[in-house]
């Protein structure tokens, strides 16, 4: 059952306006989309990062649900504790209602510094949803490379220089790393395909046990594009097959959206200043390599889907 935008617009935003995110912030859009599905009986556990910083400058808060932030690397561990307390108190009859537990972290807090806590929480099987808003670098501290930064991207710690053309490594495939834990639900989503994203959040919250959604969250400041183009760029990432929309439910891969005519990845790259240097003649090979990697991964995903049938 698709979500109805008209109906959704009548609901009060649980991630309230007035926060201090930049214009065109992809993660802020993602927060609203998640919370529209999650509803008020939700506890949010946050990692340090952009969304934490812009949404809770004391004495203000953008959160109309209970929210806890402890540190950078431990969102999954903190939500484990909240969920454990819930179970214990429920057993003792001190609480009855159903509550959603959602940990939210950026790619730094997920792919890199938080991967241990995430892996542990997944393995222990807590009943929670972990959302990674992947803006592909440490944006909060000023655009430093992360394990999620794509090949060739300029960041302040993988700068495009005269000798080294931006980041020289490919990115981690975190969604697959998470899926390899054998959890009941893992997915990739994009705010451009909001209905797909919200369906996934709904499914994840209905799942008994750990669920994970990796959401591409374009950052105008770190990716160097004009703020009104956020959703367009998110959509291009999907249409160029750089960011496939898919889910892994009980070990079965399913691609939830297949672009009819995939675009060359160059079309996504050229929209963003962080890849500008790749269009110099001497760096063109990186675009070719990028395309090769995207193709290879898409092919692999198709095979995984086929094997799941």
């Amino acid at each position: 059952m698709p979500f109805d935008l008209k109906e959704l617009s009548k609901e009060k935003d649980l991630f309230a306006p007035g926060h201090r995110a930049c214009a065109g912030c992809g993660p802020a859009i993602v927060m609203r989309q998640i919370m529209a599905v999650a509803g008020k009986d939700t506890v949010v556990g946050f990692a340090t990062g952009c969304m934490e910083v812009v949404s809770t400058i004391f004495p203000y808060t953008a959160w109309r649900v209970p929210y806890i932030h402890v540190a950078f690397e431990n969102a999954a561990a903190v939500i484990s504790g909240v969920e454990a307390a819930y179970k214990a108190l429920k057993r003792k009859g001190k609480i009855n209602k159903k509550i959603n537990f959602i940990a939210i972290a950026g790619d730094g807090g997920t792919y890199d510094i938080g991967i241990q806590a995430l892996s542990g929480a997944l393995e222990r099987g807590h009943n929670f949803l972990y959302v990674c808003y992947d803006n592909q670098a440490y944006m909060n501290t000023g655009i430093q490379r992360s394990g999620a930064t794509p090949l060739g991207a300029h960041t302040t710690t993988s700068p495009a220089g005269d000798v080294i053309p931006g980041k020289v490594q490919w990115r981690k495939d975190l969604t697959e790393i998470v899926a390899a834990h054998g959890i009941p639900y893992a997915a990739q989503a994009s705010p451009s395909h909001w209905n797909d994203l919200m369906e996934k959040v709904k499914k994840a919250l209905e799942t008994e046990g750990p669920a994970f959604i990796n959401v591409l969250a374009p950052c105008p400041v770190g990716w160097y594009f004009s703020p009104e183009r956020t959703i367009k760029i998110a959509k291009l990432a999907v249409d160029t097959l750089f960011w496939p929309l898919y889910e892994v439910e009980n070990g079965k891969h399913r691609i939830t959206y297949k672009p009819r005519k995939p675009k060359p990845v160059e079309e996504w790259l050229k929209e963003q200043g962080r890849f500008r240097h790749l269009f110099q003649e001497k760096n063109r090979w990186i675009i070719e390599e990028f395309q090769r990697q995207v193709n290879e991964r898409w092919e692999r995903l198709l095979r995984l889907e086929e094997a799941s049938l």
Partner: peptide, 14 residues
């Protein structure tokens, strides 16, 4: 933080 009728923000930026 389990009282969803009275939401609080714990650990804000200060």
């Amino acid at each position: 933080v389990l009282d969803t009728d009275n939401p609080i923000t714990v650990g804000p930026l200060d």
